[in-house]
């Protein structure tokens, strides 16, 4: 009898907790998804729906005008292509160079390697704003130890090209690269040494071991770093607005979107309705993040699983 009552009390407690948990998670999910739903609903609204008292979520006149307008102002397709090329190339270079560096720091011990690793940590901690001005000036008159002057007679201006991104990502110093090196180092440290030793005994060189044994083992952390660096490069406005002032990349387009809208949508003398502008701006944001959401839908399963095994945790 007593045992039975205890059992049911336990059950009630478990049910209560399940309900509380459900409410919490559903509520917080709603908080996260709410702005996205709102943008989707806004994007399909017609201009006249804005002031209609009836329309809250589902538009009365479904129209694609907002999309057309936003695409025109943002120059959507070329921008999409540029952004994709930029993000994809930096992502691949960053991942490769960071994997190399991470492996180096994890396994190959030499004099001063700890000191150098402290340098990696420093790159994570120092805010990029601190070194922005010198890097900017450096890239404006890019002169690799006098090499460029020797070859072409004068330093090269690398601003407004993709070179700053390619160079920094090739040398593992792009956006948040310190973090990726850290992730890779932790992960490679978690792989048992015996695997490598076996490869060495079988006659594989250091590089062969890295490419054929270690990298295939590091797929979870590779996926994490690839996704992170792609997404952060895509959304980054800090470097892109500094290095690329006139190129068409998604984040520069987005940050100048309010201004462009005000310029181009208004019909001449009279100012355009700010609510209408805001509506198109929301559509623009939706268009900008749409590719990311699509990619996330495809990789999320893999991503969520892989992060748990990445060894961020060590």
């Amino acid at each position: 009898m007593f045992v039975l009552r205890l059992f049911s009390l336990e059950r009630i407690k478990r049910w209560l907790w399940a309900i509380v948990r459900f409410v919490l998670i559903a509520g917080l999910s709603f908080v996260i998804l709410f702005p996205i739903f709102q943008k989707i609903s806004t994007a399909f609204k017609h201009k006249s729906d804005l002031y209609s008292a009836v329309v809250v979520w589902i538009p009365q006149h479904v129209s694609l005008d907002n999309f057309k307008e936003a695409m025109r102002v943002m120059d959507y397709w070329p921008t999409l292509l540029n952004t994709f090329a930029l993000s994809a190339s930096t992502t691949i270079f960053t991942t490769l160079s960071c994997a190399l560096a991470g492996y180096g720091f994890a396994r190959l011990k030499f004099k001063g390697s700890n000191l150098l690793f402290a340098g990696v940590i420093l790159t994570i901690l120092v805010p990029p704003t601190t070194i922005l001005v010198p890097v900017y000036l450096n890239l404006k008159n890019f002169d690799l130890f006098g090499l460029m002057t020797l070859l072409t007679g004068k330093p090269v201006n690398l601003l407004n090209t993709y070179w700053p991104f390619i160079l920094t990502s090739l040398t593992a110093n792009s956006l948040k690269a310190g973090l990726y090196i850290f992730i890779f180092r932790q992960f490679f440290r978690g792989i048992p040494k015996e695997i490598e030793e076996a490869a060495y005994v079988d006659g594989s060189g250091i590089f062969g071991t890295f490419a054929r044994i270690m990298l295939p083992n590091a797929v979870p952390s590779l996926v994490t770093v690839l996704l992170f660096s792609f997404v952060w490069q895509w959304n980054d406005s800090f470097y892109t607005t500094t290095y690329l002032t006139s190129s068409q990349v998604m984040s520069t387009q987005l940050s100048s979107l309010p201004y462009n809208l005000a310029q181009q949508v208004g019909d001449g003398a009279s100012k355009a309705d700010p609510f209408y502008l805001s509506m198109i701006q929301d559509t623009g944001i939706l268009l900008a993040i749409l590719p990311l959401i699509v990619i996330y839908l495809f990789v999320q399963r893999y991503f969520v699983e892989s992060v748990e095994r990445t060894g961020i945790v060590g």
Binding site: S255, L257, Q300, F303
Partner: peptide
């Protein structure tokens, strides 16, 4: 699984320009 992927969504969406634009969005505010 669904809950997890929703909670990681902000990693992707909420960074850089999007956040700053969102805060100025009139539609959201209204």
């Amino acid at each position: 699984a669904i809950a997890r992927s929703i909670f990681f969504l902000p990693v992707i969406l909420a960074s850089g320009v999007i956040m700053s634009l969102e805060s100025t969005s009139l539609i959201d505010a209204v």
